[in-house]
């Protein structure tokens, strides 16, 4: 524990800026993963335990495409599309077979896929840590904001993830697909009775969720070291986020993600060995005060 360092940081503008930026990045990337998780849960009432593996797959796809084309843009695009397709196959041929069964069967199918994808990554890309390196476009001197150091790439990440969040919000609230998705979350059989193919909606939601996770993985690839276990740790964090924000609530996921991001970045100064513990502590407190999460519906 180092409360002196934490106080010093909180009272210095430069440190405040640096830590807030890094917290926002952690939070916004986490949000992309958690938003897909909470969306899938909201509509299908299924917790997709493979969601972290989608994120991992996105990062590795970006690594390969970046190596082949030397274009970070194409790498992120490939990560998003590639993972969306994997999510579609996973949903159609495996997950949809256990929608009607109990939670245990869904858990088992996800568990099997996490094992398979982790092993597949080890076989294809090797078991050692990989790093992608920064794209040339972002190899610029960092910006100084109020004395705090902010790398250009960080600023780019924050802006891009914000744009994605706004687009996601527009899709959900303003498009026909979004309306159907929201309706299916409330009453899927009614939506089905109105002549809408709910199976198609479910696949669409799964693809959208997978795409968001793939995007997050691709975007994060330059600033994370890639390893076969990376999916599971972000899965746990996304769970914490959705529990804090309220399951099924995208706004809650945003709030929870940013809280977790800030806890991580400032916690690493004050309690370097207890950062994970801080997240769980935050979750436990919120659960005790409001079991349905900050923005979740009661019941």
């Amino acid at each position: 524990m180092n409360l002196v360092a934490l106080t010093e940081c909180l009272t210095s503008a430069s440190c405040l800026v640096t830590q807030t930026t890094s917290g926002l990045i952690i939070g916004m990337l986490l949000f992309l993963v958690a938003a897909g998780l909470t969306l899938i849960f909201g509509v299908l009432k299924v917790v997709n335990f493979t969601h972290g593996s989608f994120y991992m797959l996105g990062a590795y796809l970006a690594l390969t495409v970046n190596g082949l084309t030397n274009s970070y843009f194409l790498a992120v695009l490939a990560a998003a599309i590639g993972v969306a397709l994997v999510a579609l196959v996973f949903e159609r041929f495996f997950m949809s077979k256990v929608y009607g069964s109990n939670v245990l069967m869904q858990l088992l199918v996800c568990y099997a896929f996490i094992l398979i994808m982790d092993d597949a990554v080890k076989i294809i890309w090797g078991p050692e840590f990989k790093s992608m390196g920064m794209a040339a476009a972002f190899q610029k001197p960092p910006l100084f904001i109020a004395g705090g150091i902010v790398p250009v790439f960080y600023l780019f990440l924050i802006i891009v993830t914000l744009i994605i969040s706004v687009v996601l919000w527009l899709i959900i609230t303003r498009t026909r697909f979004g309306t159907v998705v929201r309706a299916a979350a409330v009453n899927p059989s009614m939506v089905s009775a109105l002549g809408i193919n709910t199976g198609l909606v479910f696949s669409g939601v799964f693809m959208l969720g997978g795409m968001l996770a793939g995007l997050a993985g691709g975007l994060a690839a330059p600033v994370r070291s890639l390893t076969a276990g990376m999916g599971f740790s972000i899965l746990i964090e996304s769970f914490i986020v959705t529990v804090i924000g309220g399951m099924g609530s995208i706004a809650g996921a945003l709030l929870g993600s940013i809280m977790i991001g800030l806890v991580r970045s400032f916690g690493s100064i004050g309690f370097p060995l207890f950062v994970e513990g801080l997240m769980f502590l935050l979750m436990a407190i919120i659960l005790i005060l409001k079991p349905s999460g900050l923005l979740g519906k009661e019941g």
């Binding site: 199918v109 099997a112 896929f113 996490i114 094992l115 398979i116 076989i123």
Partner: peptide, 10 residues
């Protein structure tokens, strides 16, 4: 191990 155990579970 993961690949085969996963397949058996599926």
């Amino acid at each position: 191990h993961g690949l085969f155990l996963g397949a058996v579970i599926l």
